[in-house]
């Protein structure tokens, strides 16, 4: 048998480095998934993300079609273009999934999130918090003599900005819903 010439030496790339041809740039995509509203369906979607090592930045879910028993899951995720493609294809394989839409690609889309922020403080800080809330069109939904609960809706960036401003003014707690998104136009 003729012996083959075997090259010795180091291999720089592992066989699991599966994406050499795609861009390495991390992109953020908002994906809307219409699913059958049945027990365990959210676990299927989340299990896919954790099992395959994909990121979830935010996830919202609620039934949107009561007669058809369909829920809409909105997922904000990040990954390289190939990973984003895989995420969509893998979502599409789940038997309970009806439709997968990449709003970032199909867009433009509008994205909104609701947050509630509890700000505790008195004196000047309390006045300043109220003034900034007004600028950001946040509503006061609860107040005591030394606290407010603000409700704010908007794009996630806007909520981030508002939370940053509230932090030195006594931000004690924050609850966010995650993003809901729709394509613009018809």
């Amino acid at each position: 048998m003729s012996a083959l010439h075997i090259k010795k030496g180091a291999t720089r790339h592992s066989a699991y480095n599966l994406r050499p041809n795609f861009s390495d740039v991390q992109e953020r995509h908002t994906i809307a998934v219409l699913v059958e509203n049945e027990p365990g369906v959210l676990a299927r979607v989340i299990g896919l993300f954790s099992g395959r090592g994909y990121n979830i930045e935010s996830l919202t879910v609620a039934e949107v079609d009561h007669t058809g028993h369909l829920s809409r899951i909105t997922i904000v995720t990040t990954g390289t273009p190939q990973v984003i493609e895989q995420i969509k294809a893998q979502l599409g394989r789940i038997v309970s999934v009806h439709e997968v839409h990449d709003l970032t690609v199909e867009g433009p889309s509008v994205e909104r999130e609701l947050a509630m922020l509890k700000v505790v403080g008195d004196g000047e800080k309390r006045v300043e918090a109220l003034r900034l809330a007004d600028i950001f069109r946040a509503n006061v939904v609860d107040s005591t003599l030394n606290s407010f609960v603000f409700e704010i809706t908007g794009a996630p960036d806007k909520i981030d900005a508002f939370a940053d401003l509230m932090r030195p003014l006594g931000l004690a707690e924050i609850a966010r819903t995650g993003v809901a998104a729709l394509l613009r136009g018809d």
Binding site: I6, K7, G9, T11, S14
Partner: peptide
């Protein structure tokens, strides 16, 4: 061997020591 290409096959009589590097 793991981490090698198709044209880097080991055959029966090929020397086998040290051809899989630490990465592989």
């Amino acid at each position: 061997p793991s981490g090698k290409a198709h044209n880097e096959m080991l055959l029966g009589e090929a020397e086998t020591q040290g051809v899989i590097d630490s990465k592989g």
